[in-house]
């Protein structure tokens, strides 16, 4: 899998460049690397070829939303907010972590949790 590694500051500019070149936004993938660091992959398609942008982030340094460039990303960004507890400032249609979850839920189900993993290992 080919992926171009970028920094969070370059993201919106890189997406705007992708859009100008006629790429279709496919989706985003978030992977929890450990408790606080996350890997975000942005997948784009042009003429049946996939291109991927890769960046690493943490809960304390939110990545800016790309919905201003690709509006279609609002759904997947909301999903990542729900499942991983990350935040995307500037999100065009922000559900405030209620797309899948109920309002009172605070924790993120897809995050790596060292304490919980220890428990399952002990079992």
């Amino acid at each position: 899998m080919r992926a171009e590694t970028i920094t969070p500051d370059q993201l919106v500019g890189a997406c705007a460049r992708m859009k100008a070149e006629g790429f279709r936004f496919v989706t985003m993938t978030c992977t929890a690397m450990d408790e606080n660091s996350f890997e975000l992959l942005y997948h784009f398609d042009k003429n049946l070829e996939l291109s991927t942008l890769r960046l690493t982030t943490s809960k304390d340094s939110p990545v800016h939303s790309i919905t201003a460039v690709y509006f279609a990303a609002f759904l997947v960004e909301n999903e990542i907010q729900d499942l991983f507890g990350l935040r995307f400032p500037g999100l065009a249609l922000d559900y405030n972590r209620t797309l899948y979850l109920d309002e009172e839920i605070r924790d993120a189900p897809f995050c790596k949790n060292a304490a919980a993993e220890k428990n399952t290992a002990a079992e």
Partner: peptide, 15 residues
């Protein structure tokens, strides 16, 4: 480690 599934309707809801 991770499996990510982007289904077609997920891409068709924004439209």
């Amino acid at each position: 480690e991770r499996i990510r599934i982007r289904t077609p309707t997920f891409a068709n809801v924004p439209v």
